[in-house]
Each structure stands twice: as structure tokens, then as C-alpha cells.
């Protein structure tokens, strides 16, 4: 169960791990946009290559990356099938005609393009945002990126603090859930057998103590935080200041070049266009 909460981050010391989380968030968003800009064979080929390069640079084992793709394999197959059967192209591109089924070359291209787009997007975002960035860095990065919003009274700091506390307490609460479940099992509670409604009912003896304890924890934590002079984000300084280095500028430069290349390939390159 613990792997669910923190399973995504893959500890390593690659260049990617050392990038400023703000830069990674920005690049991640750019990467998604870029993958949507791709229109033809060449730009999609570039996208594929870029995904492979990302895996290499971040030093994430391919096995782990494949695991995350496995999770969406059904969605991909489903969209691919839809594309193959429902895309209509010009008459001369028809390659199969049987009863009401018409398959065009266009459909096959589209199916492949979309599969590549989804896979690259998953690889890109997970490498930028989850595999190489701890949840807490991500929260820090978001807090600072969104800082300007505080001027229009968005409580950015408060949200970030909530995120931080949630991340801090997830393992604690999971552990507690396991403990309470064991305690109720020791009193004969059964969480695995019986109908769905019976099993849902069996969770009451777990959920009530869990809520009671979560509220108690929240109260105690609030007291402890007040005692440590917490008064919200105003006047607060930070130990860790995010610093951008030449690496980050280089990364931003690469993504800009990458975006430009995709746009150019879309315009000049021949072949099927989506």
C-alpha cells in the first residue's frame, strides 16, 4: 500500500532530477502542447525520438516506464480501433471495403499518430513531473510559479501548505488504516467476504476511528504549528530557495528548439498530414 503513495518518484541523480521543479513544470506543459502540434510523419517521428531521449537522460529504467504505459494500454487500443474504423479519407486511400466497414490509409495513420502522442505525453509528463520530481518539490514549484496569483487574492500559500501536510500524513494515515483494520479483524470483522453492501458496511468500524483520529491529529498539528509561530505565508522566509542554473536555461532552450522544430516539420515536410 505504501508504494501507491510514493511509488511514482524514482530516486536517482540524473540531470533531470536536478532541474528546478518550476522549469520542469513549465517544460512539461510545453511538451504536452508540442505533442498536440504534431501533424505529420516527421514531426511524430521527432516526438518519438524525444521521448526516448527523455528516458535516457532521466536514467529511469525502461521497465518502469513501460509499467506506467501498461496502465493505459486499453484506452490506447480502444482509440486506435475507433480511428481505424471511423476515419474517412479520399476514395483513392480506401484499402479495405467489406459490408459497412471502410478502412482508409488515413485511419491507420491517425491510429498510429494518436498512440504515439498519448505514449509520448505519458512519458514526458511522468518523467518531468513524477519520476524525477518529489511531490514536495512539485508543490514548492507550483507555489512559486503561482505566486503572482496571490495579488488577486488566491490563497496559493495555503493550498501549498495543505498539499505539504497531506503528503506528510499520507504514509501515517495509511499505516493507521492498516492498524485499525487489523484491530477490527482481531474482533472478527470480515472485509473480504460477503456482498458489496455487506463489505461496505464492514468498513464502518474502520472509517469512524480513522476520522476521529484524523481530526485529533489535525487539532494537535494545528496547535503544534501555532506554537512554532506559524501565521500563514506573510513574512515567512524559506530554507530552500529554488535556484535556476545554466542547466535549467539549457533545458528551456532545448524545449524551445524542439517546439520550433515540430512547427517547421509540420509546415515543410511532405507526406500524410493529420
Amino acid at each position: 500500500m505504501k508504494s501507491v503513495a510514493f511509488g511514482q518518484y524514482y530516486p536517482s541523480n540524473s540531470v533531470m532530477h536536478r532541474l528546478d521543479p518550476r522549469v520542469k513544470i513549465v517544460i512539461g506543459i510545453f511538451y504536452i502542447v508540442a505533442s498536440f502540434l504534431c501533424k505529420n510523419v516527421l514531426s511524430f517521428a521527432l516526438l518519438t525520438v524525444s521521448a526516448l531521449v527523455l528516458i535516457l537522460v532521466s536514467k529511469i529504467p525502461v521497465k518502469i516506464v513501460l509499467k506506467s504505459i501498461k496502465a493505459i494500454i486499453f484506452i490506447m487500443i480502444f482509440t486506435a480501433i475507433l480511428n481505424i474504423f471511423w476515419t474517412k479519407g479520399p476514395e483513392e486511400n480506401l484499402i479495405l471495403h467489406w459490408n459497412f466497414i471502410n478502412i482508409y490509409v488515413d485511419g491507420i495513420y491517425n491510429a498510429v499518430f494518436i498512440a504515439v502522442r498519448i505514449i509520448s505525453m505519458i512519458i514526458g509528463t511522468s518523467i518531468f513531473l513524477t519520476y524525477t520530481t518529489t511531490p514536495i518539490e512539485l508543490t514548492d514549484g507550483l507555489e512559486r510559479l503561482l505566486y503572482p496569483l496571490t495579488f488577486i487574492k488566491v490563497p496559493v500559500h495555503e493550498f501549498a501548505m495543505m498539499m505539504t501536510i497531506a503528503l506528510r500524513f499520507i504514509p501515517t494515515i495509511i499505516e493507521e488504516t492498516e492498524k485499525i483494520m487489523s484491530a477490527q479483524k482481531a474482533r472478527g470483522a470480515d472485509f473480504t467476504n460477503g456482498s458489496l453492501s455487506k463489505r461496505a458496511k464492514a468498513l464502518i468500524p474502520v472509517l469512524i476511528p480513522l476520522f476521529v483520529s484524523a481530526f485529533r491529529r489535525a487539532g494537535e498539528l494545528a496547535t503544534a504549528m501555532t506554537c512554532r509561530c506559524y501565521r500563514g505565508g506573510n513574512g515567512r522566509t524559506r530554507l530552500k530557495v529554488l535556484k535556476t542554473t545554466y542547466r535549467d536555461y539549457l533545458a528551456l532552450f532545448f524545449i524551445a528548439v524542439f517546439g520550433a522544430a515540430i512547427v517547421l516539420l509540420n509546415i515543410y515536410a511532405p507526406g500524410y498530414t493529420m
Partner: peptide, 18 residues
């Protein structure tokens, strides 16, 4: 129920930051 941050040094820094 007193520790706020997910990394030891950041937790210790919480008070001084405030």
C-alpha cells in the same frame, strides 16, 4: 502530530521560516 514537512531538515526549518 508535530512534524509538518516530509524531509527532516525542512521540518526543523519550519519555525525559523515562520
Amino acid at each position: 502530530n508535530q512534524l509538518v514537512a516530509t524531509i527532516v531538515e525542512e521540518d526543523v526549518a519550519f519555525g525559523p521560516e515562520n
